[in-house]
Computed example of a mutant assay.
Amino acid sequence: MLMVSQTDIGRVRLVNEDRAAVQSELNGLSLAIVADGMGGHQAGDVASTMAIERIQEGLQYIHSGMSIDECKQKLRQAIEKANESIYDFASQRENYYGMGTTVVVTVASQDLLLIGHVGDSRAYKIDRESIVQLTEDHSLVNELVKSGQITPEEASQHPRRNWVLRALGTEPEIEVDIYEYPWKQGEIVLLCTDGLSGLLEDHTIWNHVKEETSLEAAARKLIHSALDAGGDDNVTVILMGHDQETEIETENEKG
Rank of each mutant, 00 (worst) to 15 (best):
K72Q: 12
N95I: 13
K81N: 12
Q23I: 15
D111Y: 14
E70S: 10
L112F: 12
I62S: 05
I52E: 06
Q42V: 10
L113C: 00
T106R: 11
D36V: 07
C71D: 06
A43R: 01
D69Y: 02
T101P: 07
A43S: 01
V22Y: 04
M99K: 04
A20K: 10
N27Q: 05
E80L: 10
Q23P: 04
S67D: 08
A32M: 13
L29Q: 08
K81H: 12
T101I: 12
G28A: 01
S85Q: 13
G39S: 05
Y96H: 14
R93P: 15
L59H: 02
E25D: 12
R93H: 14
L113D: 00
Q60G: 08
L113H: 00
G100D: 05
Q60P: 11
D18C: 07
M66R: 06
L29F: 08
L26R: 09
E84G: 10
E94V: 15
N16T: 02
I68V: 14
S30Y: 09
E84S: 10
L113F: 01
V105T: 09
D18R: 08
L114N: 07
L113Y: 00
L59M: 04
D69Q: 05
R76T: 13
G65V: 07
D88L: 15
F89L: 12
L75Y: 01
R93Q: 15
R54M: 14
V104M: 01
I62H: 00
T49K: 11
D18I: 12
G65M: 08
Y87A: 05
D69C: 03
V105S: 01
A32S: 12
A51V: 04
G37L: 11
D69M: 04
D18W: 11
A43F: 01
A32W: 08
N27S: 05
M99W: 07
D69T: 04
G40V: 05
S85I: 09
D88G: 08
L114E: 06
A51E: 03
G100A: 02
S109H: 09
S109C: 06
M50D: 01
M50F: 03
A43Y: 01
M50Y: 07
I79P: 02
G44H: 03
